[in-house]
């Protein structure tokens, strides 16, 4: 890689740090950058690759290159090390949004969040995969008011926990309920499993220090990937999930 690329990456990095390229937005296209900086497009591409490796940028196909660097410490994640574990095993993790909707809490979520039936909620269902092999489906519901402009956020780029951090919601306790069930129809097809195949099911409830429920997620895990979600260690009388040890 040429020194040019390092120089260009330094220019882009400064624009990110001084917020010319703000968190959550795309940087100019490679073509525009090449023109502005008067260098070859290959140099721009190499410079961007460097910043992607550093974790400042993320390329999203068909959309552009996003700034994903925050100065917020994000230690609160229920499967914090999941992507890390998968990467170590040779998988490139990916998350695809299947559906999102704004809805009333209704019977189910009013009980889980201890709120009235008509409270506005935001629900998002995602398919997680690695190297295009289906891993899990995650059905997440949060209070609509807990994240500003939640409908406009691209959850293919940003994690829910980035959003919680930005909105000053700090997760304190995470309750997991592990069990097994079976998968049918659309979900079975999406997970690449036969109709009625057994799966690991996980229910997750994240709460703040004040005991307010911030998030409810139901996960269906393809059996072959169970270890990334379920392996744990008990030390000094405390339970830790491997995916949280990173």
């Amino acid at each position: 890689m040429s020194d040019n690329a390092t120089e260009v990456s330094q220019i882009i990095r400064e624009h990110i740090l001084d917020k010319t390229y703000a968190y959550g937005t795309t940087i100019p296209s490679e073509r525009d950058l090449a023109q502005t900086l008067q260098v070859n497009r290959n140099v721009i591409r190499n410079a961007i690759d460097l910043l992607i490796e550093e974790g400042l940028l993320k390329r999203v196909q068909g959309k552009g290159t996003y700034v994903i660097k925050t100065d917020i410490d994000d230690s609160a994640i229920h499967f914090k090390g999941m992507s890390e574990l998968l990467r170590q095993a040779g998988y490139t993790p990916n998350s695809k949004v299947l559906t999102t909707k704004t809805r009333a809490a209704g019977h189910k979520y009013s009980n889980i969040f201890h709120i009235s039936n008509d409270t506005k909620m935001f629900q998002i269902v995602r398919l997680r995969s690695g190297n295009n092999i289906p891993i899990s489906i995650e059905n997440t519901t949060i209070l609509h008011e807990s994240i500003q402009h939640v409908e406009e956020i691209d959850f293919q780029v940003y994690s829910l926990y980035d959003m919680f951090s930005i909105n000053k919601i700090h997760i304190h306790t995470i309750r997991h309920v592990f069990s097994s069930s079976k998968t049918y129809n659309t979900f079975a097809r999406l997970l690449g499993l036969e109709e009625g195949s057994p799966i690991v099911s996980i229910e997750i409830i994240s709460s703040t220090k004040d005991g307010l429920v911030a998030e409810h997620t139901e996960v269906m895990v393809v059996p072959a990937f169970a270890k990334y979600y379920t392996d744990g260690i008990i030390r000094n009388g405390e339970f830790h999930l491997s995916s949280q040890l990173f």
């Binding site: 609160a76 304190h172 309750r175 997991h176 592990f178 069990s179 069930s181 744990g232 339970f239």
Partner: peptide, 14 residues
């Protein structure tokens, strides 16, 4: 028997 048991654990974050 997964259909008869819930395996529960709570984790407190640092």
């Amino acid at each position: 028997v997964g259909s008869r048991v819930n395996l529960v654990t709570s984790i407190t974050l640092p």
